[in-house]
Structures are given as C-alpha cells and as structure tokens.
Nucleic acid binder design. Structure first.
Lengths: 309, 309
DNA sequence: CCGATATTGTTGACTCAATCAACATTATCG
DNA sequence: CGATAATGTTGATTGAGTCAACAATATCGG
C-alpha cells in the first residue's frame, strides 16, 4: 500500500501548497472587517442557536482568553447578545443579534464568491478534481466522529467496471495475479448483466462513507435449484469491520428467498480470509483441483452450502 | 458535472475540517520554539542555498516588514547569517548557519512524527484515502505552475475495468445510455485481452497529471489488412487539450506500422465531437444504420480511412 | 549621463492572535 | 461540606499582520 514516509511527505507537501495557495482564502477576506479567528467564531455562533463561550472554545480549540476578548468585541459592536442561563449561573447563552446575522451572511457571501472565483480561475477540469479530492478528505476527517456505517446497495452504472478494476488491482497487489484475471472478471460481469434475471440473480455493492468497499454476486447455476456466489471481495482498509460477513449473509438470505436449495462457489486456496468466512457460514469444501491461471499455479476449490433448513 | 454551489460548499466544509483537525499540525508544534510563520520561513531558507528576504516574502506571500523582523530574530539567535551580494548592493544573501540547519532538522523530525502519529491514529484505511486525496489536491494546486503535459502509456492492471467504468458513466451522464453499454465495453475489453497479439493489437491510456483522461484501442478486423479503432473516449475536463487528436494520431500511426491497409471504426451519430475528430483525420463515412441499443434509438455509423499513402 | 520609477530592506505604530498566569464565580461529586 | 473542576474575566507578553514612511539601490527610457 502507501509507504509511511511517502505518506508523511505527501501530506506535508499538500499542507505547504494549501497554506500557500488557498491560505489566502482564510485570512482577511477583501472587504470584510473580520480576521480569520473572528470569522471562525462568527461561523460557530451562526451554526448554533444559543451556545456558551466554552463550547465554542472547545470546538475551535481556541484559548478561553481569546474567545472572551473576541466576544467582548462582538458585543461592543452589537453583533452578539448574551443572556444568563437560567439553569447555570456561570455560563452565558450567546446568540447573534440581527445585525450579527447580517454580518455573518455578508461574510458568507464574500467567502463563497472568493472560492468561486478561485475555482473558475482553475478551470473546470482542475476544479472538479480539486473538489472531489476535498470531499474525499473531508469525509475521512469527518469520519473520526461519526463512524459511518456499512451500507449495501444494488448495481449502478460504472459498477461493472469499478468492481473489475478493484478486484484486478487487489489480487495483483496481494497475489501477483496478471491481467488474465481482470479479463475474466470483465467477462463474468458482462455475462451477468446480459443474462440478468431479477428472479434468479442479484448483486450488492458495499459502501462505507459513500465509497465502494466490497461486492458480491448471486447468479444461477447449471441446475435450477443451485445458485452460485461470485466475485466476493472486500477492500483491505475495510476488512475486519464485518463487510464480508454482511455481504455473504445477505447473499445467502437472498438465495433462500429465491428458492435455491444449494449455494456453491468457486475460489482459490490462497484466498484464506475468504475461506474462513465461507467456513463460518457453514460452507463445506466439495473438491479441489490444481490449475494454472492468472500467471500462477493455484488450487481451485469448490465449496457449497445447503440452504434447506 | 459538479454543481458550482455544491463545489463551493464542499471546499468550505473541507477547509473548516482541515483547519480544525489538521490545523494543529501547523501552529506551534509541541516542544518546538517556532511559530507557524517562523517555521515556514525556516523551511524556505532550508530549501534554497542563498536567497534574499524579498524572494522568501514573495514565495510565502508575507509582508516585507514581517520577514524583516523574523529574519532579525533568527539572526540574533544565530540561526541565519547573511552576506552582501557582490552583484547587488541592496540585497543580502541569506543562509542557515549550522545551528540553524540543526534547528530545521529538529523541526522537520517533530513535524514528521506529529503527522505520522496523526496518520496512525486514523488507521490504515482512512490514512490511505487521506493521503491519496491529499496527493490529488496537491497535484491540482501545483499544476498552476507546471502545466502537466498529456502522456500516453500502455495498459496496466485495472485499466480494463476503469475504462469500462468511465465510458459507462460518461455516456450515461451525457446521453442517458443504460448499463447495456457498460456490459458491451466489458465484453469488448475482455475479448481484447484474451485475443491480444502485440503484432496486431494495441491500446493507449492518455494521462494528464497521473490521471486517466482518455483511451483508444487498435484491434485487428475481420480481414488481415483491416484494423479497427475502438473505444475512443476523452474525459470532459480534458477536452479541448488535444487529447483526442493525440490518441487518434497515435492509433493511425501504429496501424500503419503494423502494416494495415485500412482503419475502420464504428460509432454513433450522437457522438458529434468524436465524429469531427475522425473527419479531421480523413476518415470517411461508409454507411449508417439505425439500431436500438443502450436504451435509445441510435444511428450507428461505419467510418474508414485508407492507410496507403 | 539624468531623472523617473521600481525594488529592497528597515523601522515605527497599531490591532489582533496566541499563550501563560492569576483570579472570581459557580458546578459537581465523593 | 469540602475538594476539585469548569467557566469566564483580566493582565502581561510575544509574535502576526498591516499600513506608512523612509533610505538605499536598480532599472530603464530619453
């Protein structure tokens, strides 16, 4: 994956560029009377109905003294009003006055137009990539608090290709498989779409924070009462979070609902973590056979699970 | 593509998170005696052999007065020494003293370990995504100065899937084509890999700043002296930069080298920008025929170009 | 060569940022 | 109830950031 030193220097490089280039968006917007700190405090005040100085300080990691002085300035300018908390004699409940809110809206508009101007200077392509990357970073940074849950969804356009690419890249990185595997997946998925029958087939994409982190496919087998589980995979960074188990469980349940008597799958002996998953759900190894594929000598395995219980 | 208002608010959200969460990496690292501004100046001094105050000021967008005072402090602490520029009586050539360099190395180590600690707190998955996104943003921000050129490369693992996904998503967005098209591309690419013969087939991925922005495939046709051009596409944000022309030209040249007499292609009448490209390179429309595919009534077109000249 | 103009670097003046320490007031908890 | 913690204010100090004035030097057109 990503080397640790590389990662650190990449982040540092980004940090420098960001401070040098976008940093100007922070401090002292053109006509605005507010400094960066003031703007941040103003923003937090606008977001909450009635909050306390300590709360804002914690949220912005600002010093109590600084918050106190900033709020005193705001109060003198009649941007902020406070009233005593009935349930707490020490704290004061702060809120923006109408003119405080107007000042916030003005600041907001200035910031928006500054960013908008920056983006249009970049051009459509670059700004699109910038925004996409910013979203991705924001998601990671935000995820510290709200650990986003795993969700499953059906296939969307682009998924056939993305599943192909991710599986190919993963197995190339982890086991050195060559592009034969990618072509095989592309073939399987193309066939899956062509022959798709909602009464007998299904597919799920696992997402974590809006990102694809795994997939599983349920397709009809050679006889009407046998289904095949195919193309199970979980992104390395999402492993251990129960994504694989959720996918397999969902697949088994749907296979039962669709009336299949037996669920089979083909895998390779090197895929140990997948095998453990199958065993946990009661799959039994039927037979195995060596084969040479994807540039390696492998041992293919057929597993199956009886659904009649 | 990305909506402008969405883009602005995404960037703002990112900016807030970044200042709140990683901002602490900037100002005043734990044991370090340097403030953020001082650290930035120190960094710039360490990067260049002998530079002037004005140069650093321009680079960091800092005030002359502030630079002057910072440098005066550094000089008093014997971190920086300056000598008169022989060729310029006003400027002074600044450089770090040995103890200045030691201070820089110390700061560097502290920063690295702070970032490293932050990354390990995030966990492998999140930090990987964060770093990837940071690289992507850095590339965009950096690209202002060094306009990265378009490069062509051969196929890598993952490309079959990525080309499939990007083409499917693009034509779904632009023309509303359904997933039948994605399955068709997956099929074509799977076959391409299976039947690949370096003496008769070829493929190129266009990259701009390390990102895939287009592709083209050259495959043998039904008769030995006829080749087919397939799956040409260019990302919207890279259009107008000559990516398409570069791809087509490269493909035509290779077709000549491989000894083909004629290059044919199949496209659809709605793909007007591609058609203009083909016309520019001398392709002529042989025939067209309506068909119903990808959820729409389309007019398929066969174009061809004689390579004997 | 001269004079207008720009660049470089310094200094003073001022406000805000950031941090530490001290303090009064109020909550909370054993 | 008393120790301890949290809240908010104030003073003190250093640096950040900005504006303005100034001196010294470069540059360039005439």
């Amino acid at each position: 994956m990503v080397d640790r030193d590389d990662a650190v220097s990449s982040l540092r490089a980004f940090n420098r560029l960001y401070t040098n280039q976008l940093g100007l968006l922070d401090s002292h917007l053109d006509g605005s009377p507010f400094t960066l700190s003031e703007a941040r405090v103003l923003y937090e005040l606008a977001q909450r109905s009635e909050s306390t100085a300590a709360e804002i300080g914690r949220c912005l990691k600002m010093d109590r003294a600084q918050i106190s002085r900033t709020l005193k300035r705001f109060t003198r300018q009649e941007l902020v009003a406070g009233r005593a908390d009935p349930s707490h004699g020490r704290q004061r409940l702060l809120s923006l006055t109408p003119s405080g809110r107007a000042a916030f809206e003005d600041l907001n508009a200035r910031t928006d137009s500054a960013i908008s101007g920056f983006l249009s200077k970049l051009g459509a392509g670059r700004s699109g990539r910038l925004v996409e990357a910013a979203r991705s970073m924001a998601e990671v940074l935000d995820a510290r608090s709200n650990a986003s849950p795993i969700t499953l969804r059906g296939l969307r356009i682009g998924d056939l290709g993305l599943v192909t690419a991710r599986q190919a890249i993963l197995y190339a990185e982890e086991y050195g498989w060559n592009q034969d595997y990618e072509a095989l997946v592309a073939q399987i998925l193309s066939d899956f779409h062509r022959d798709f029958d909602a009464a007998r087939d299904a597919a799920w994409i696992a997402e974590l924070g809006g990102q694809m982190v795994g997939s599983i496919f349920l397709v009809r087998g050679n006889s009407p009462d046998i289904a095949k589980l195919r193309l199970l995979y979980v992104e390395p960074h999402a492993r251990g979070a129960g994504v694989g188990a959720l996918l397999v469980r969902t697949c088994i349940e749907r296979a039962k609902v669709l009336g299949y008597a037996r669920l089979t799958l083909w895998t390779n002996s090197v895929l140990t973590s997948a095998r453990r998953l199958y065993e946990r759900f009661g799959f039994a190894l039927d037979d195995e056979r060596p084969h040479h594929s994807f540039g390696h000598d492998l041992i293919g395995q057929n597993w199956s699970l009886s659904l009649g219980d």
